[in-house]
Nucleic acid binder design. Structure first.
Lengths: 165, 165
DNA sequence: CTTATTATGGATAAAATATATCCGCAATAA
DNA sequence: TTATTGCGGATATATTTTATCCATAATAAG
């Protein structure tokens, strides 16, 4: 069971956007440089976040990305769902129906107990991610980072962010 | 995020082995036929289950597989871990360390809050699976299945199981 | 002891998915 | 009007999953 790297990148990208002063935008090139990830691939995740209404994009000269709503209102599950989709990780192929003793469709009104258990477990997983907001992440990072690093990040953001017209 | 089909197959295979009378063995060919899945690939999962000590294998003429311990003592997490491994689904690539404001190793003594949140969520996922035993699954299936189907399965097992020498 | 049967482990092939890149188009500010 | 920036689609590459095969070891039965 593997989560795509895009989720990690998207989460970190959102965490950076959360540091941005309001009314400011950060272009994807700058974002990719900051994160040290391949720009065109990050673009994919940003588009997904944009479609999901998590970030807002502005085209044009001084364009870029910003959070579409407050950091408190964005959870890690929102980001994961936007980038990875919401298809269940456990794919039930209805093994019950196969083979010499296969059950008829009528005998399978609901998911078997195996599939049900995996689905319950995944529901919990999603719920756990949904309890962590972007503001939690940012607060945690602020607590951990050295003053020096925070300063450097702030300076870099001021250098690379564009003001929204 | 996707779980391999092997987990589903392995779980159903174990559920069948749990129905087997004690001192009986079921060869993999029969198991694959019963489940309606490709025999050589199922063999892979059975080997993994065998290495993990979940099923016991016996080579030779009247050989085959049986559960290595009681169904109460085998959980869906045991099976998943045996087949898929225990590598965390969230792969932290330490994005913090990248780019113009990258943190030094010394500034990253522990996992960032994003990685930590995903790891917590996954720990819950595993725990949820660990609360479901094979005997729960078998009991659930027994409750759902028609008497006719249960009869057919019993007959088929008697037909295809070998007695252990 | 010989033979038939069955699991093991490694090598390999095919298919699917994740990762990465590119380009033409639309939108927008200056 | 022009330069910049995101959007969406098409495409290439790498990795993983899925599937198969074979030589070997183990074992029961004749």
């Amino acid at each position: 069971m593997v989560i795509g790297k895009g989720v990690e990148w998207a989460a970190h990208a959102c965490a950076i956007l959360a540091l941005l002063p309001p009314e400011s935008l950060l272009p994807r090139e700058a974002l990719a440089e900051f994160l040290g990830v391949p720009p065109p691939y990050l673009a994919k995740q940003l588009q997904a976040l944009s479609r999901a209404g998590i970030v807002a994009a502005q085209t044009g000269v001084a364009g870029g990305y910003r959070l579409a709503r407050q950091a408190e209102q964005i959870t890690l599950w929102d980001i994961t769902a936007a980038v990875e989709g919401t298809t269940p990780s456990f794919r039930c192929t209805e093994v019950r129906r196969n083979g010499p003793c296969g059950a008829s469709p009528a005998e399978c009104p609901r998911a078997c107990d195996i599939a049900a258990a995996f689905h319950r477990a995944e529901a919990g997983y999603r719920k756990a991610l949904a309890t962590v907001s972007l503001s939690d992440v940012v607060a945690g990072a602020a607590r951990t980072a050295t003053t020096d690093r925070k300063q450097r990040i702030k300076a870099w953001l001021e250098q690379n962010a564009a003001r929204r017209g």
